[in-house]
């Protein structure tokens, strides 16, 4: 046991240098103003946070959370049935289906977003096909719809995989028992399968919502930069405006909000796990 502890040291040191120190710096910058390259010249200030509270920027934060919530919901609605289908497929096909889900992720995310750009753009692939068959053109890019599509596309596998894992681990005999006791398919699903899959759903939601709320680039490319999200705003501060203090304040606010949503999710998860024992025992 003691030896195992020793093995954890390299990782602890790694964490300290590359996670704790940068986090501390972000916190420091968020509460100061002045020259970022000289720590002695920093003065305490809450200007960064005051600027975050301006209605203009609160709207950006709101937008990010709403878009992230919508795309998480869409991923859940689309992803759950897919996870079901994959988990019920026969083992040979199943491996291939999982492959199909994972292979697109091997390609760089930026490249895939550019691909979406040339599909959705006003004179892009989709509209040319629509025109060819005589249908009206779709004016979705640049716009929120295109951003949502891009987000759902990029994050869907993160919803499907955890749900699939949980579903495929459900003990078959539990379902058989439900059937023996006279439950029809819908009832079996509602009272047995769904409650048992909640942990997968919760981790799926977390894994989609977190990257979705802090995403950038997608909104810039597919949305034409007209409705920037909080991730774009942070990038703008560090890469263009050079205002690290405001950028850090935004990052801290985003982190706090993510922590709160994670706390809510883990509560839901715990409640779900307590509940899901009941139908099985029944």
């Amino acid at each position: 046991m003691k030896r195992m502890k020793l093995l954890a040291y390299p990782y602890s040191v790694w964490m300290a240098i590359f996670i704790v120190v940068p986090l501390f710096l972000v916190l420091l910058y968020s509460f100061t103003e002045g020259n970022i390259h000289n720590l002695t010249e920093l003065r305490f200030s809450t200007k960064g946070y005051e600027r975050v509270l301006e209605p203009l920027y609160l709207k950006v934060i709101m937008n990010s959370f709403v878009l992230a919530a919508i795309s998480t919901l869409c991923c859940l609605v689309l992803g759950y049935p897919v996870a079901m289908i994959v988990s019920k497929a026969n083992p040979k096909v199943r491996g291939m289906l999982v492959m199909f889900l994972i292979v697109p992720m091997w390609m760089n995310f930026l490249l895939r977003t550019y691909a979406w750009m040339s599909i959705l753009s006003p004179n892009g692939f989709l509209n040319r096909v629509l025109e060819l068959v005589g249908l009206p053109r779709l004016e979705i890019m640049p716009g929120k719809t295109a951003v949502l599509l891009g987000m759902i596309y990029n994050f869907l596998p993160f919803m499907i995989l955890p749900i699939y894992t949980v579903l495929s681990k459900i003990d078959k005999s539990v379902i058989e028992a439900a059937n023996d006791l006279g439950a029809n398919k819908i009832k079996t699903f509602m009272r047995v399968i769904l409650p048992l899959s909640i942990p997968g759903v919760v981790s799926g939601i977390t894994m989609v919502f977190l990257p979705a709320v802090s995403t950038f680039v997608i909104s810039g490319l597919l949305g034409g930069g007209k409705t920037p999200l909080i991730g774009d705003l942070i990038e703008q501060q560090f890469m263009w405006e050079g205002n690290w203090h405001f950028g850090s304040s935004l990052s801290i606010i985003l982190m706090v909000m993510i922590l709160i949503s994670m706390a809510i999710m883990s509560r839901l998860d715990r409640n779900g796990q307590q509940e899901d024992k009941n139908p099985v025992k029944m």
Binding site: S121, P122, N123, G224, K226
Partner: peptide, 22 residues
């Protein structure tokens, strides 16, 4: 102007105009 602007882009502008997107 933002009300009538399609989008804000960088190097992509050239390709988008050439492609007839704007």
């Amino acid at each position: 102007q933002k009300k009538i602007v399609t989008g804000y882009y960088g190097d992509e502008i050239k390709d988008m105009i050439a492609n007839g997107d704007a």
